[in-house]
Simulated assay, not measured.
Amino acid sequence: MNQTPNNSIKCSVSNCAHHCQGQNYCTLNEIKVGCCEPNATKCASTECASFQLGNH
């Protein structure tokens, strides 16, 4: 699994399979951001759709 941090994608979700352990960055080249609600009006209405549960 890639453990090279993508310095353009900050992330503090340490239980994600794509989290660069020891650093608060994602290891993916790009992420997909999705909505939890039809009309997002606040941060809580969005999510990282690239999240995968890791086994850290």
Rank of each mutant, 00 (worst) to 15 (best):
N29R: 02
I9S: 00
L28E: 02
K10A: 15
N29V: 00
G22M: 07
T27Y: 02
A44P: 00
S14M: 01
I31M: 14
T41N: 15
A40K: 14
I31R: 10
Q23M: 07
S8T: 06
P5M: 12
G34H: 09
C43Q: 15
E47P: 01
A17V: 00
H56N: 13
S45I: 04
L28K: 09
S14R: 01
S14H: 03
E37G: 03
A44W: 03
Q21W: 08
Y25K: 08
K42F: 07
P5V: 09
Q23T: 09
G22K: 07
Q23S: 14
T27N: 03
T27S: 12
C36S: 10
S12N: 12
H19L: 08
N15L: 01
N24Q: 05
C35N: 15
C11Q: 11
S14P: 01
H18R: 03
F51P: 00
G34M: 08
C48V: 05
N15G: 01
T27M: 02
H18W: 04
Q52A: 11
C43V: 14
T4D: 14
P5C: 15
P38S: 12
H56V: 04
Q21S: 10
H18C: 05
C11L: 09
E47G: 00
S12F: 01
N7Q: 13
A44Y: 03
G54C: 10
A40Q: 13
T27D: 04
C26R: 01
S45K: 10
N29A: 07
Q52R: 11
V33E: 12
A49I: 01
